[in-house]
Amino acid sequence: MNIFRILGDVSHLLAMIILLVKIWRSKSCAGISGKSQVLFAIVFTSRYLDLFTNFFSIYNTVMKFVFLMCAYITVYLIYGKFRKTFDNENDSFRLEFLLIPVTGLSFLENQSFTPLEILWTFSIYLESVAILPQLFMISKTGEAETITTHYLFFLGLYHALYLANWIWRYQTENYYDQIAVVSGVVQTIFYCDFFYLYVTKVLKGKKLSLP
């Protein structure tokens, strides 16, 4: 495992912990898209079914388990424990616009036509667009709490570090997975606009608000 990969995983974990701590401390999930969090729970569930079929390493098993737990706890806090604080009105992205094309594409473009491979491919495609309901919500309300922007920053950083990981692996092992790389590039592009706002506003101590 290379440095980009491990830092990518740490960023990913940190993003999920930041979100959980934000919701838990403030006892509120205001400004958080429940739909994006449900999509991430679906992403992990469909990708980590190999927990039952293959063993890679203790690290791999533990991290997959932790990611699944974080995703499900977040969804529970939003739609269960703190549902009264959930901004349903502004979380209005139409999920079928993502789920239908992603499902179709995972049947058409995969490495092999087996249930586990199709589900893995589905999870990769879905992850690349899962943040869109959250970004849509921010553009609709025109603002985001600073802690929410930290969450998005670490999530975006994870994607960027995974790109570096794939470049590294291609150079050293001649390994690459086209589906993962293309999806990874797509999702990193979604964060570019946000990264710009994060650096120019949030890091200078201002709240992220759109004109």
Binding site: D50, N54, F56, N60, Q111, Y162, Y175, D177, A180
Partner: peptide
């Protein structure tokens, strides 16, 4: 193999 390798990533 590459097919195994990608499942090792998270």
């Amino acid at each position: 193999s590459p097919k195994e390798s990608k499942h090792d990533e998270l």
